[in-house]
């Protein structure tokens, strides 16, 4: 099978890669580009562990084909921190113990980032429904919701 050449932007950098037609964006990120922060929990769009942001929208990268990303802008967990400065969501997740095993965390952070871009001051209900596509089996979500609330307050400049 011949490969397809794809030009895209990942975390602000121009990236070119070759992939087969049946390869997902998740496969490409993990197996071809060495970006292993997105995890495969199901491969069927049901767990959100592979969440990335494409053109500002959260997507399950296991449901996007690598070839579909031609000309798109992709954000992954690896690009979330600004150099050595963690994003407020990242700091708050650690501070609130919002992760136990942490395998769901990259996906939650991507989804939460998209949420706060759309709703800087979300209600608890909005947070819970925005994050409903991301499964966490360890935490019971309590501390995740609190971390997102706290990060949102900080990003609005309200401090804590």
């Amino acid at each position: 099978m011949t490969s397809i050449a794809v030009s895209t932007t990942i975390n602000g950098d121009d990236v070119e890669f070759l992939c087969r037609a049946d390869e997902t964006l998740l496969d490409v990120l993990r197996n071809r580009l060495g970006l292993m922060g997105a995890k495969e929990g199901c491969g069927t769009g049901d767990c959100g562990a592979c969440s990335t942001i494409m053109d500002g929208r959260v997507v399950c990268s296991c449901l996007v084909l690598g070839a579909e990303t031609e000309g798109r802008e992709i954000e992954t967990i690896e690009g979330m921190a600004n150099g050595s400065d963690l994003h407020p969501l990242q700091s708050k997740f650690i501070e609130h113990a919002a992760l136990q095993c942490g395998v769901c965390t990259p996906g939650f952070l991507m989804a939460a980032k998209a949420l706060l871009a759309a709703h800087p001051d979300p209600t608890e209900k909005e947070i819970r429904f925005w994050l409903a596509g991301n499964l966490c089996r360890c935490t019971g979500y309590d501390k995740i919701v609190r971390a997102v609330q706290d990060a949102a307050a900080e990003m609005r400049g309200e401090g804590t």
Partner: peptide, 21 residues
């Protein structure tokens, strides 16, 4: 007390390596 966990940064930046990584 409730200090920050030592593996926290790796886990929020996608650097922590799990079974498939």
């Amino acid at each position: 007390t409730r200090p920050l966990r030592p593996d926290g940064v790796d886990k929020v930046t996608g650097r922590a390596r799990y079974g498939a990584d």
